[in-house]
């Protein structure tokens, strides 16, 4: 690693360290009530305590299970509808308008009606998350299936490829970049919505609930820690997907 890069990395650390210092000075001199801004050392201590107590892992596990279920249902449905609409213009004309109309409703707007129909159940939350993952996945898959250039279709005709082989060898690979970014977007959407679900459906369990409870009891240190963990997991999910994308799309790079 050359010197320039080290300098850039160090600069990136400057601002967080300065903020930490300011935070520490403010709390040291008690310019702001510790209720609203607990000292850094308290947050660190609480963090250690939470990790040792282990309840946080139960909540974490609950959120991740929920998000995994909703996400998988959502992207599967999105993949099926997106591919079907991408391959058949009749299906597109049939489902497209309704899909686009429903999509205009902000996702959080569905919460009240989901609660009415399914009650405050796990099922309601999973459907909610699945719906959030469904939209971007459908759109990206649909777009991807339209990516194949006419020139390549001619190659398929020259080699007398049948429909399934055309799909497998030509259409899906050319749609892959778009599908993978659909999966990534759906994943971060689902991760946000699981927190949302736990907050808005006001039920027990999960990181969102832990956060909400901390808010109600004005335990600022726990709010900070949950934000940190939620952000960290979101980052890891995104990063893993990006690595996967790079691996699967090696053919795109020229070197």
């Amino acid at each position: 690693m050359d010197v320039n890069k080290v300098v850039l990395k160090l600069r990136g650390l400057a601002l967080p360290l300065a903020l930490l210092a300011v935070w520490w000075i403010i709390t040291k001199n008690e310019w702001v009530s510790a209720v609203f801004l607990p000292p850094p050392e308290t947050v660190a201590a609480t963090c250690v305590k939470l990790l040792l107590k282990g309840k946080i892992f139960v909540d974490l596990n609950e959120s991740i299970t929920k998000v995994a279920q909703g996400f998988l249902i959502g992207i599967t449905a999105g993949f099926v509808l997106g591919t079907a609409m991408g391959l058949s213009s009749t299906i597109e004309k049939l489902f497209g308008p309704l899909f686009n109309a429903v999509r205009q409703v902000p996702i959080l707007g569905w919460i009240p009606i989901l609660i009415l129909i399914f009650g405050l159940t796990e099922l309601a939350k999973i459907i909610f998350i699945a719906l959030g993952a469904f939209y971007p996945m459908t759109l990206n898959t649909f777009d991807g299936c339209r990516q194949l250039k006419k020139e390549y279709l001619e190659v398929a005709r020259v080699f007398e490829f049948n429909k399934p082989r055309l799909l497998w060898r030509f259409i899906l690979p050319s749609a892959l970049p778009s599908i993978l970014s659909g999966i990534r977007v759906s994943m971060s959407e689902a991760w946000m919505l699981v927190i949302g679900a736990e907050i808005f459906f006001k039920t027990r369990g999960g990181l969102g609930d832990m956060m909400w409870e901390a808010k109600s009891k004005v335990q600022m240190d726990i709010v900070f820690i949950t934000i940190l963990i939620i952000g960290l997991i979101g980052f890891i999910l995104n990063h893993v997907m990006k690595i996967l994308e790079n691996r699967l799309l090696r053919w795109r790079s020229s070197n």
Binding site: W191, M211, A214
Partner: peptide, 23 residues
């Protein structure tokens, strides 16, 4: 200077800010 912290904060799903802002 600012990029890294911006990118870190960006990772937090927006709904997770609600409790903090309420307090």
């Amino acid at each position: 200077y600012v990029g890294p912290i911006f990118n870190a904060l960006r990772q937090v799903p927006v709904l997770a800010w609600i409790p903090l802002f309420i307090i």
